[in-house]
């Protein structure tokens, strides 16, 4: 097998000042091959965005990181300053969640693109804008972010992420702040750009419908832990972890015309209130006493990993 572009192993992140000795990200493992599209899904507060930032080496200095984050086989955390700096933008590009705050309100789009392109790019600000579907380049380049629509801003952000021809693009919920129609356009755009430029894509989202369109493999996270991972079609068709099944039951699908949605009871706890053992057990219908121990992530069928003592039965399809 070729070296993965990004390989995360035993990754734990703590914020000692805010949450003390609690692992906000706990023992995460994730591989992304060259040109592969991988999704990370979970509810808000599951640590998906944090994982994205950790992978991009952009965590705030208050974060305490243990484990390995390897980029093209080299551990990012043992790299020298120069090498680590070269990774930013050129190795890994990030599309952030909130395009309005992620763009500088005081600079024109042109100035923001130029200062990144100047660092080394195969493209120009104009070409990048055309690539992301903004054809009125003159106007967009002169505009400040607040003069653009939400969809346009998100496209600019994608252009910024792609400006330096990265091998890996991390898209951190790039569609949350957008209208549903624009969401679909942005996802289509990401997919198209990925097919053109062959970068690896880590797509962080809570939206299973978007994930199914985009990612070949999916990792499901709950409360800072990986609960299940495998090929996207498999996971969506036959979820094994009760949390994944719950997410599926709670999501809307027009085609299926289901009468009622089944929400997962409760909510994700703050990291300070994570329970020991399986962190999902207090919301889980299958939970037993042994769930007070931490279930290890173990192989479960071809290409699949699962961390659960009492998974959903294999035969049982989701309702």
């Amino acid at each position: 097998m070729t070296t993965p572009v990004l390989s995360v192993a035993n990754l734990s992140v703590r914020f000692p000042k805010r949450y003390g000795a609690i692992d906000v990200l706990d023992n995460i493992a994730l591989d992304i091959g060259p040109g592969e599209r991988v999704a990370v899904v979970g509810e808000s507060g599951c640590g998906k965005s944090l994982l994205g930032l950790a992978a991009a080496d952009l965590l705030p200095p208050t974060a305490q990181v243990t484990g390995q984050i390897s980029f093209r086989g080299k551990d990012v955390r043992t790299m020298g300053r120069r090498e680590r700096f070269a990774l930013r933008g050129a190795g890994i590009g990030v599309v952030y969640q909130d395009a309005l705050t992620s763009l500088n309100p005081g600079m024109t789009v042109g100035a923001q693109l130029r200062q990144v392109c100047r660092l080394g790019s195969s493209s120009t600000p104009e070409r990048l804008l055309v690539d992301v579907g903004l054809t009125d380049t003159g106007r967009v380049l002169r505009a400040k972010p607040h003069q653009l629509s939400g969809g346009q801003r998100q496209r600019v952000l994608i252009a910024l992420a792609l400006a330096r021809d990265p091998d890996l693009v991390i898209a951190d919920e790039p569609t949350t702040a957008l209208d549903v129609t624009v969401q679909a356009q942005v996802v289509a755009l990401l997919r198209e750009l990925q097919e053109q430029h062959h970068f690896a894509l880590l797509f962080v989202s809570h939206d299973l419908a978007l994930v199914s369109e985009l990612a070949s493999r999916t990792t499901v996270m709950y409360a800072g832990q990986v609960v299940e991972s495998g090929p996207t079609t498999e996971i969506l068709a036959r979820p094994r972890h009760p949390y994944t099944a719950g997410l599926l039951a709670a999501s809307v699908s027009l085609e299926e015309r289901r009468e009622t949605l089944t929400p997962i009871p409760g909510h994700v706890r703050q990291p300070g209130e994570f329970v020991a053992g399986c962190r999902f057990r207090e919301r889980c219908g299958n939970a037993r006493d042994d769930c007070a121990n931490r279930p290890e992530l173990a192989p479960d069928g071809p290409g699949r990993l699962l961390a659960c003592f009492h998974p959903v039965a294999k035969e049982e399809e989701t309702p």
Binding site: F85, R88, G106, R164
Partner: peptide
């Protein structure tokens, strides 16, 4: 957030501070 965007894109710190942050 936009500071993170600039840093994440590889813009050197001095330029982030002088050209991006200071004006605002």
């Amino acid at each position: 957030d936009y500071v993170r965007t600039a840093v994440g894109a590889g813009v050197p710190w001095r330029a982030v501070l002088l050209r991006n942050v200071l004006r605002n």
